[in-house]
Simulated assay, not measured.
Amino acid sequence: MTPLSDIGRQTTSPTVGVLLSNLGTPDGTYYWSVRRYLAEFLSDRRVIEAPRLLWLFILNALILTTRPQRKGKDYATIWNRDRNESPLKTITRSQAEKLQQSIRDGLLGETKSNVIVDWGMRYGNPSVKSATERLVAKGCERILFVPFYPQYSAATSATACDKLFDVLASLRNQPALRVAPPYYDEDTYIDAIAGSLTERLFSAGFEPDVIVASFHGMPLSARAAGDPYYVQCHRTADLLRTRLGLPQERLIVTFQSRFGRAEWLKPYTDETIKALAAKGAKRIAVITPGFSADCLETIEEIGQENAKYFFDKGGEAFARIDCLNDSSDGMRVIEAVVRRELSGWV
């Protein structure tokens, strides 16, 4: 045991891992690749809270026979063909690489060679398991886990933690663990979203009649069960309105990507966008503050599918605002979270 008098003389710091994680992606756009991804995703008890045996029958007998082909075609419209991967994978890798470089350049006050950044997906590849094993193999005695979800939900943040806990449960020599909390109301995040929106609208050359803040949906039953996601989404929107000086009717909250027949959080994004155009709105902008990186739900669902809804109903100008991604503003958000959560470790 080290005497207290010698603690201040120690110069060797433990190796610390920073593990970034997002939702996930199929490895390709073909049927079997998308099926594998959807099977893993939709088998998660946190994602689908339904009677198990009934749901597995529906999933395997119905959903996985047709949905992979349809979603594969959607993925094909946004696929990064140079790297043969989805944009989400490309962006998450870049976020990890840029964070590692920022740490080397003195993000934490001085050059830190004992902080290693890696990344893994909750579903698909590269996995949280493989990333954790890499960090442990490199001697990381401590790991900061950063789920890339600004707002907390059991179906996103919690299941990401579940997966990591499962991995750690298999280790005899476990590293110490910290989990970064959601950052839905942090100044750096709100400033970044507001700045990104302002810059994009300036380049688009029009003032929107309405700004739609579209968040990923969830079953209404999840909110009733106590999930804080809905409240946190609205808190983010409230802070954005204040930062931008907009009245409530100029920046509205909607929820997208509903699945199945159950009632989900409302208002629905697609129905709202159709209604806005039908009521005479000619110019709208859509932001997706619940996503840290662009993916199928933002690029294809918002930028293609919902844009078509708007134009078909008489809309004239539609701007999809990119997620923060690995932009300088986006990296400042990630860096702020990491710097705060590593306090006392490095």
Rank of each mutant, 00 (worst) to 15 (best):
T298I: 06
G303M: 08
R339W: 01
S127P: 14
E297D: 10
P14D: 09
Q256C: 07
P182G: 05
I58R: 05
P289S: 02
Q304T: 14
I334V: 15
V16A: 02
Y75H: 07
A225L: 07
D270G: 01
V18C: 04
R67P: 09
T236W: 08
A213Q: 08
T111N: 11
L19M: 00
G106R: 09
T77P: 05
R104S: 14
E97A: 11
A336G: 11
Y183I: 12
Q151N: 03
V117M: 01
T15E: 04
T111G: 12
I78S: 09
S127E: 09
D270E: 03
L99H: 06
Y149W: 08
D82Q: 04
P3N: 05
L99R: 07
A224E: 13
S196R: 12
E297A: 02
Q174D: 00
R200T: 11
V167H: 10
I143K: 14
L244Y: 03
D166V: 02
I7N: 00
K313A: 15
G280L: 05
Y184S: 09
Q69M: 09
T254E: 12
Q10L: 08
P51T: 11
S94D: 08
S221L: 02
R142F: 03
T29C: 14
I284H: 02
Y183D: 07
T15W: 03
D270W: 00
E249K: 15
R70I: 10
D191R: 07
C140H: 02
L135C: 13
I116L: 15
V16M: 02
I299E: 03
I284V: 10
R261E: 13
R93P: 04
D227F: 05
W345Q: 01
D209C: 09
A275L: 06
K163I: 08
G106V: 02
N306D: 08
A319G: 03
A137K: 13
I78G: 13
A194M: 04
V210K: 03
P3K: 11
V338N: 08
Y152T: 08
P182A: 05
H234S: 04
P51H: 10
R223D: 05
T2E: 12
R261K: 15
L177A: 04
L99F: 06
Y230H: 15
A204K: 04
T242M: 02
A285D: 10
L88C: 03
V115G: 11
N80W: 09
F311Y: 13
R320D: 06
I273F: 01
W119V: 06
V47D: 07
I211C: 09
G195F: 01
I334H: 07
A222I: 06
G226P: 09
R35C: 10
L251V: 15
I7V: 00
D191S: 10
L240E: 03
A275E: 12
F310Q: 14
R52K: 06
T11L: 04
W119D: 10
R178T: 14
Q256T: 09
T188Y: 03
W55V: 08
R332Y: 07
N84S: 03
A222L: 07
S113Q: 13
V16P: 00
S21E: 06
E335F: 08
A225M: 00
V179Y: 11
R339S: 12
A192C: 02
A131P: 13
Q174H: 07
A281P: 00
R70W: 08
S113I: 05
R241Y: 02
A176E: 15
V117Y: 03
F145C: 05
V167A: 13
D326K: 11
I103G: 04
T11S: 04
F215T: 14
E305Y: 14
T272Y: 06
S86P: 04
